[in-house]
Structure formats: C-alpha cells, structure tokens
Design a protein around this nucleic acid. Structure first.
Lengths: 340, 340
DNA sequence: TTGTAAGCGTTATCAC
DNA sequence: GTGATAACGCTTACAA
C-alpha cells in the first residue's frame, strides 16, 4: 500500500504538504502541488480512509436499518438514500433486521462502533429498549432520522408517507366520479398505516356527506385471499358501487371476487387500491391506486440526515410525503369509457 | 468516547491487558479478566473499529456492487449476502451503479480505499477498463466474487443461475405433458441470459426429436407489451400448442394475447415463463415458471467470498445454481384438470 | 509556503 | 501474566 510518506519522499516534500495538497487546503505553492499530484497519480495513490477517519472522526459512511430488503416496499427508498449519499461521496451500510428488536439494537451498536456519520432507521415498533438505544444515539449526538411511522416520544426527524391524505384522495376520487356507496377493505386493527388510511377514508366520506354503514367496512390482512373474502362479504351484505382497499394486493383479490360475482369493473363496482405495486399496472383491468413516492421518501430522509451531519440541528420534525393518485381502468367513469 | 485507556485506568491494569481480555487472547489471569470485563460492561465500552482496522488491516466490511437495488432481481440475493455476512459479524456496503462502467470503477476504488475485506460484484458487461480494475484487485489480493454471468477472462469465483438447464426443464416439462409444438419467446439477441435459455430450449426440443420451425421463434424485449405482440405473431403464423417465454413478464403479455384470440390456457395453448416473479402466482390462471433460487445465489456468493477472506485461495470456478420448476395452472394437463 | 511532530484508539512485540 | 512502547496512515497545530 502506498502512503503519503511514499509520495512525500518521491516528490521531495513533507507528508504534511502531501496531505494539504490532497485535501485542497490551499497554502501550497502551485508548483509543489502539481508535483505532488503528479506523483500521487503515477503511484496510483488512494488515501487510507480508516486512518483518515481515526483522525477526523468522519467515516463517510452512513448506516441504514430496515426490516427486510426483500420486502418490495424498501428497494425504492434504499435507492433514494444511496443516490444522495453517493453523490456526497458517502457509502451506505445496509442491514436487514426483520424488525427484531434485539437485532436492531445490536446493529445500531455495531454501526456506531464502525463510526458511521449518521443512521437512518425504519423502526418496526417503538419497543422500550429500542427507544432507549435511540435516545443514547441522541446523547452522543449521532445524526439519526426515522423512515416510516412516527414515534412521537422519539424526538428525531422522521419522514413518512401521508397515509391519511392518500386515502382521502382515493375516496374523494371515487366520490367525484359519482360513486356514492364507497366501501372499504382495511387492514388489521393494530396496523398504523391501515388505521391512518381508514381515517382518510372516513374523513372524505364525511366531507362529501356520504353515510358509512357498518356493512361497508370489511377487514383483511393485506394478503390476496383476504381481499377476496372481504369483497365477497361486502357484496353480499350491501348495495355498494365502489371499494377502496388499503393496499393493492387485497384490491387484486377483490377484483377476482367481483368478477366471480358476475359484476363488471368499473361499471358495476369501481375499485381503487393503495401502494401502486407493479402488478397494479399489469392486471386487467389495470388497477387505480395511490402511489407512494417511495424513492422520494428515501431521498428526503437522506437529505435530512446530511443536514444534521453538516451541522444543522435536527428539529425532530415529521416530514409528510404527499402521495399521488394513479388513475387506471378500475375507476374510469362508465360514460368516459363509452365515449372514448 | 470511552477507550481502553479509560477501562485500563479504572481496572488498574494496562491498556495492553484490556486489549488482551477483550480479544480473548488468553495469557491473562482469570481474575483480572473478570475485573476488566466488569468495568468494560459498566462503562458501556465498545471498541473503535477504525482504530482496530488501522492496526489489523481488517474492517469486517464487505462491498457489494449491483446495477440497481430497485430491480426486483436483486433484493433476494442481497438478503442472502447480508445474512451470511451478518452472521460472521460483517456489515455490507451496497452500491447501485446502474451498470455504468465509470461508476463501477469509481465504486471499486472507493470501496478498496474504505478497506473492505472483500467484494461481490455483479458485472454488467466485461468492459476492458473494468476488467483491468478487477485484475488490479486480484493483484492486491483482495477477495472478489462475481454474481451473475461469467466472464471467462476474469479468473475469479463466480456464481450464477444455470439458465440453460432451467430452460431445458421448462421445455421438457411441456414436452412430457404431451405438448409437441413448443414455441419460444426469447429476449434481445445480445442478452446473455436469454441466449443461454434459448440454448436450453433448443436442446430439449432436439432431445425429444421435436423440430423447431422458424415460425416457432419470436423475440421480445423482456417487457409486457413485447410478450403480447410476440405471442400474437406466433399464433398467427403457426399451429402451436405451447409457449416457453424466457421471462415471466413477457409470459404475462402472452397470456393476454392468447386470451384475446379466444384460446384457452392451458387447454389450447400451455404457457410457461422464467424467473418466478411474484406476479406469476397472482395471475389467473397462475403462471408456471422456472424459479431461480435468488436468495441462495447471494448466499453462496457470500460463502465463497468468506472462504477467500479466511485464507483459502479462490479457484476461479464457476458455480452454477440449479433452478426449480414451479408448476401452476398454465401447464396443467387438460386430462388432469378434468379428473381433479 | 513548508516541515516537524503529536496524536487518533487499537494491537502486537518486546521485555520483565 | 503483565506492562511499556512502537507502529498503523493520516491530519493539524505549531514552528520555521
């Protein structure tokens, strides 16, 4: 390995000068700088970043902790984070912890030992030990930002999709098209995202003065089959002309159920989902949905992190990302369909 | 930050002893060891890994370079790599380089500067500069393994799915079910994977003495629409009773085309894809396909890397991963369907 | 503008 | 068994 001492010797200067040149600190005669640069290039010099880090207490590394990179929700925000990090000449260390509190804490420990300059965490649940650990990070003033649901007791920056608003938009879209009896297929009671989305749905219905009867609310577990069953139940019980599903997969299940009942989409029942998974665009009819700007979410989280790294104090604020309505075939107005 | 000096002082021993204890090197009286351990725990000591790395030349970091984490092919192998790395107390730094040679080289440089103990690369194409860079890594004897298509001129370990075999299995499956006129929708000429899969198809057809007429070969670009069009062309030109598509997405397109022609799947035309994307199981009828054990691929790559890291010389061998046939509704024999 | 030297927190080589 | 002490490669006062 070639060091600044090697360069220094060959360029007939001191190691300090080499360092100054390489870090463009100025205070160096242009001539000597050129000389150093030339030798460095010739010897294919590349600084030893751990030695540098040991001195400067900066590693140009950030840590990212998520439950599982295999979960299709994550690749996009991860890429967003990578892109802003790499542009700043940072690398990102990624750990999948399966939402296991023990693993999460161990990983945080390991990452701080490595000396990452900042940390982005997707907290599964705010268990007490984990919260304590994150507090510790704040105490040693390590920049941290949370990706995903907010935990108010943690005073850290947080960026998350505005689930309520997205649900509102979806429901309102249905309502504006002239559908009145909009049913909902929601997720398990405990799930935060589902709860937020249900709230948005309710608000829209209220704002448009549409009553929600009990028969219009059905619950699934985010999986295909549960959407299918929930839709069947809905169709049985009630006259309804549209369904909002809190995720696309259940919407796809519902689509199958509706078809089986001999009903047409969107003629008899309009359908809209949430997430904009790839499949939404491939199904027939293609599924209208609410898209989360997932890449953006990661990008913003990273930008917040770098603001902290660059010295700005974190405000412990909640950054809400605006979702987008994606209109496809399952919510085309019948009239519009026949005229086109 | 608490250092071994702090621990040493508080435990009334020398820093050297603390280090010995913490690294379980032995040669330390049990009593003193306990004392040190207690203080370390109490002070919540965690070693500074950059300082350690500076001495030991080991970072417990490995680098991973892929084109794009957002491409659904990658999350699974990435997770495989993470799992074996984390179990060995390693972290993995992941970069998405969009298959851009310049970025790939820069990233390799950066990662070696960081001092990763090994590197896993998914080489898009073996451009000369990149090849040169990888040779350099071998020269400084940094462990490297390639994930994906092999480049024979690079003498490094490589792990990749056996595309030819997978295609053979798919085709043979169709043939064994009694289909004879098996058409293929392949990918762009330049694509290595597609070429390998085409080879497997051809071999199976030959082995079963089925002639391949020109009208049975169609080409797409891996996207949905191209599969649709390719299938239409196929149906027009020829009597065929089955189609093998070199990827699932095109198979889904083909499915739509077949349905539009008023033909039934698998009664009139059987259909099989390659990749086993999530969608394959959700479509109706569900799509038979060839699954690549993607997680396994990453796992094996990482295991090979650690073998190198732990001192075994790399053999520059090609590790071929066996694909699995996933039989679903699009290749059910009609007879079987009616009897069940 | 340049050089000397101290130190970042470890580990490893010696002595004792 | 244990303790000084010298690296590891770099940055940065401080001097010159």
């Amino acid at each position: 390995m070639v060091t600044i001492y090697d360069i220094a010797k060959e360029a007939n200067v001191s190691p300090a000068t080499v360092s100054r040149v390489l870090n463009r600190q100025g205070n160096v005669r242009d001539e000597t700088a050129q000389k150093v640069l030339k030798v460095a290039k010739k010897r294919n010099y590349s600084p030893n970043t751990m030695a540098r880090s040991l001195r400067t207490k900066k590693t140009n590394l950030i840590g990212l902790i998520i439950p599982d990179i295999e979960n299709p929700i994550y690749p996009a925000p991860v890429r967003g984070i990578q892109d802003v990090a790499n542009r700043k000449d940072y690398s990102v260390i990624i750990h999948s912890t399966d939402g296991d509190e023990r693993k999460e804490i161990d990983t945080i420990r390991r990452l701080t030992a490595v000396g990452v300059d900042g940390l982005i965490i997707n907290i599964s649940e705010a268990c007490t030990l984990l919260v304590e650990e994150i507090r510790r990070l704040r105490r040693i003033s390590l920049p941290v930002v949370a990706l995903g649901p907010w935990h108010p007791d943690l005073e850290i920056d947080c960026v998350s999709v505005n689930n309520e608003k997205g649900a509102y938009m979806a429901t309102e879209h249905l309502l504006k098209l002239g559908y009145h009896k909009v049913a909902i297929i929601k997720g398990p009671e405990g799930n935060i995202s589902s709860r937020e989305r249900f709230l948005g749905y309710k608000k829209a219905m209220e704002d448009y003065c549409e009553p929600i009867s009990e028969g219009m609310i059905s619950e699934g577990n985010f999986k295909l089959g549960s959407g299918y069953k929930a839709a069947k139940r809905l169709i049985e019980k009630n006259k309804l002309d549209a369904i909002f599903c809190v995720n696309d997969v259940m919407a796809l299940g519902a689509m199958a159920a509706i078809r089986e009942e001999g009903l047409r989409i969107p003629d008899d029942i309009a359908l809209i989902g949430f997430d904009d998974i790839e499949l939404a665009n491939l199904s027939r009819p293609s599924l209208s949905t609410v898209a989360q700007p997932k890449y953006e979410t990661g990008k913003i989280a990273a930008e917040l992190l770098f603001k902290q790294i660059e010295g700005k104090l974190s405000s412990g604020k909640y950054y809400s990302i605006e979702p987008n309505l994606v209109i496809r075939e399952t919510t085309l107005k019948v009239k519009e369909m026949t005229t086109t």
